[in-house]
């Protein structure tokens, strides 16, 4: 059996609002993600997709169950160790880009290297990552001087910098038009072709159709888990000039 990058067993997460109300965002999730998979997570609003992603990305910790990431039991790690995992083993891409507005593109991309990883050749590595997402000519632009699609590509370059084992993207195309979405998807597909594991939350079936596997959630549980027989290629859609979602 191929080594799983992610292994979730009975993971639960409960939010408390005030004293009385509790929300069971995750109610016992079992999930395996193997290396070089490209997984789409779908499901209605409030079904727990973001909660699951945050736990996968070690931005949050589960209340119950176990999470083993690349062989390591994440539940037993300290706050500082979790920060180290976020720094080196996961690259997170958010719907709202989450770039620092004061910094220009390349400074944003360099950020993970400030907090760890190999500090040598910081500039060169950031530049290489930006070139990988097609923004080699925009390195001195501030986020406010970039389009939404370009900002998201800067965010992807940042996620790639420490060469993480897994890219996690929570609705990365949610704020983008179809052409920009296709560009983002083509980058993910290219990365995946090179062996990178990608997990992506999306609401749009057309976006999910680019992935190799679709996991559907409902009420904090995994409802369906299926393989996509023939994933669509974003490059082809870009080549013929039509949007990915049309």
């Amino acid at each position: 059996m191929i080594q799983s990058v992610v292994q979730l067993r009975g993971v639960t997460k409960t939010y408390r609002i005030g004293r009385e109300i509790t929300v069971n965002a995750l109610r016992g999730v079992d999930l395996d993600v193997r290396a070089a998979e490209f997984v789409a997570i779908m499901g209605p609003s409030g079904s727990g997709k973001s909660t699951l992603m945050n736990i996968l990305g070690c931005l949050d910790v589960a209340d119950g169950g176990t999470y083993i990431l690349a062989g390591e039991n994440v539940g037993k790690l300290s706050d500082g160790q979790l920060a180290g995992i976020r720094n080196k083993h996961v690259g997170f891409v958010f719907q709202t880009y989450n770039l620092l507005s004061r910094l220009n593109a390349i400074e944003n991309v360099e950020l993970p290297l400030i907090y760890g990883g190999d500090r040598k050749q910081r500039r060169e590595r950031a530049l290489a990552a930006l070139e990988q997402v097609g923004l080699g000519d925009r390195i001195h632009h501030r986020p406010s001087e970039l389009s939404g699609g370009q900002q998201q590509r800067v965010a992807i370059a940042r996620a790639l910098l420490n060469d993480p084992s897994m890219i996690l993207a929570d609705e990365p195309t949610g704020n983008l038009d179809s052409r920009s979405s296709a560009e983002i998807l083509s980058i993910f597909q290219r990365l995946n072709d090179m062996g990178k594991t990608v997990v992506m939350v999306t609401h749009e079936p057309d976006v999910a159709a680019h992935c190799k596997r679709i996991v559907r959630m409902r009420d904090g549980l995994i409802a369906r888990d299926e393989l996509v027989p023939r994933p669509r290629r974003a490059e082809d859609e870009l080549a013929v000039g039509i949007g990915a979602a049309e």
């Binding site: 931005l59 706050d79 907090y115």
Partner: peptide
Amino acid sequence: TREIGIRKAVGARRGD
């Protein structure tokens, strides 16, 4: 606050 969240998301520790 958001900046702090972003920095933490890319691996900043409390001490940082």
